[in-house]
């Protein structure tokens, strides 16, 4: 166990921190909470309630918003769930199998 983190994973961490910083910075441009004249409270909600049945043909307003009006959001949401599955497999199953192949050494660290 010479080093716990390799240089490459340090670079990955820096990239993650940079993306997180950009995201946190971008939240300053969002409208603040509890503000009654937000765009979300003025036009969209009433339009969904009155027009959803006519525009999408779906009596279920939640489905209309989820899959039709906010379709791109749900697409990214599905890929987030897929990413969760891949990461769980990568963290648990691959590590276990490597340990099996290399003799079940519990202290072994997987670099990169």
């Amino acid at each position: 166990m010479k080093h716990r983190f390799s240089r490459l994973s340090f670079a990955y961490g820096l990239i993650c921190l940079a993306v997180l910083g950009i995201m946190v910075y971008c939240t300053t441009f969002l409208p603040s909470y509890t503000q009654l004249d937000n765009p979300a409270h003025r036009n969209v909600a009433e339009h969904y309630i009155t027009q959803a049945k006519a525009e999408t043909g779906s009596p279920n307003m939640v489905t209309a918003v989820l899959a039709d009006y906010r379709g791109l959001d749900t697409l990214i949401e599905t890929s987030v769930i897929f990413t969760a599955g891949v990461v769980t497999y990568a963290l648990i199953a691959i590590r276990r199998r490597k340990n099996y192949i290399w003799g079940g050494d519990e202290d072994h660290e997987i670099d990169d």
Binding site: S58, T63, A64, G71, G85, Y89, I92, R96, I101
Partner: peptide, 28 residues
């Protein structure tokens, strides 16, 4: 269109949950 999209979501969620269960329960 909503139905096709929901089929995609269903396949993704179902397979993800099964794969998580398999990874957790799998011994080498």
């Amino acid at each position: 269109g909503i139905l096709f999209v929901e089929i995609g979501v269903t396949v993704g969620v179902m397979a993800t949950i099964i794969s998580i269960f398999d990874s957790l329960g799998k011994v080498g």
